Simulated scan of single mutants.
Amino acid sequence: MSLLDSRTRPTHQWLRPVAVASAVLLLGYGLLRLLDRLDGHSDKGAWAWNTGHTLFLLGVLGFAALIVGLHGLLRTRSSRLRTLDDVAAPAGLVGAAAFVWVILGDLFPRFADAVPTPGLVLYGGPLLFEVGLLVLLYRAAAARLLPVWAPVLVLAGFLAIAVNLNLLPVGAALVLAGLLPLRVTPRPVA
């Protein structure tokens, strides 16, 4: 019997609900962004703009929790790729922090004035976030916690968003579809 038996082992049952909620928040942001732009321009500070950015902020924080949870869950399994997990998780978290920095600057102009956003944060942050999360999702698929097609959908969602921000709802729906089948116990081998 290990020191951490099934009664004391930390559970990761919260991972799937957080993953799904984060993708739904991203979808809500995308829909509100489209709503805000119906008149042809963005109304910074309007209710749809503020609410959408707040949903985006909460979604990014949820994705950061997902990164931490996936890293912890994958570390409980014996793995020759543990170093990859140990690099991907901090990279994803640095990227999430960059997103938070930018979102806070959008929501609070005084924050943006006090702490200007360097271009590296603006462009490198999203890339670190996406690569870190995707590496962990592919590792989760290898551990049979996700079907192999699920990280591909998440990647397709991120690519759609990168191509055109007006595709945010489509990209978020793909991310949601990719995260829905997440499990914390491996799928049985067929």
Score class of each variant (00 low, 15 high):
S78M: 01
G45D: 04
P147I: 09
T54G: 10
A156S: 13
F63K: 02
D113A: 15
E130K: 07
A162M: 03
V131E: 12
P126R: 03
I161Q: 15
R80H: 13
D86I: 00
L127H: 02
T76C: 00
R80W: 03
D85N: 14
A89S: 13
R144P: 04
E130G: 14
P126N: 09
F99V: 03
L70C: 09
L74T: 12
A98W: 07
A65D: 01
V94F: 12
F158C: 08
L58M: 09
H41W: 04
L136T: 12
L84S: 06
L153R: 10
A140P: 14
G132I: 13
L81C: 01
V102Q: 15
A173M: 00
G59K: 13
V148Y: 13
F129D: 08
S42H: 04
V131R: 14
F99Y: 15
V170A: 15
V60M: 11
P116R: 14
V87T: 10
A65R: 07
A46T: 05
V102G: 06
L66V: 15
W149R: 12
F108I: 13
S79L: 07
V152H: 09
F63Y: 14
L66I: 10
V131N: 12
L146E: 07
L84D: 00
V135L: 15
L120W: 15
L128Q: 12
L155H: 10
G132V: 11
A46Q: 06
D106V: 04
A114P: 02
V163G: 01
H41M: 04
L155M: 12
G125M: 06
A98L: 03
L137H: 13
G92V: 06
D43A: 05
D39T: 14
K44C: 00
L74Q: 05
L81D: 06
A46D: 15
A112C: 01
A141N: 09
W101R: 11
G52M: 02
A98H: 05
L70P: 06
R75E: 06
P126W: 08
L57I: 01
A150N: 07
A112E: 14
A48P: 14
V115W: 10
Y138E: 09
P90D: 06
G124M: 08
F129I: 11
L168S: 08
H71C: 03
F108G: 01
G59H: 14
L168M: 06
G69D: 08
R144N: 10
A114H: 04
V60R: 07
N164S: 12
A160H: 03
T117C: 13
G124E: 11
L155Q: 09
G92R: 07
P169N: 02
A114K: 01
L93R: 05
V148N: 11
A96P: 00
H71M: 02
L136F: 12
V102T: 14
L107M: 05
G125Q: 08
R80F: 00
A160C: 08
A46V: 01
A162Q: 08
L81T: 06
W49M: 02
V152R: 09
L66S: 10
A97I: 09
F129C: 11
A112N: 10
V163R: 05
G59Q: 11
P151G: 14
A160D: 07
A173Y: 07
W149L: 04
W49G: 03
I103L: 02
L146G: 11
I161Y: 12
L136N: 12
A48M: 03
W101C: 01
F158S: 10
F63E: 08
L127Y: 09
L145W: 07
G125W: 09
G92S: 05
L167M: 09
R82C: 02
L153K: 08
D36I: 07
L133M: 14
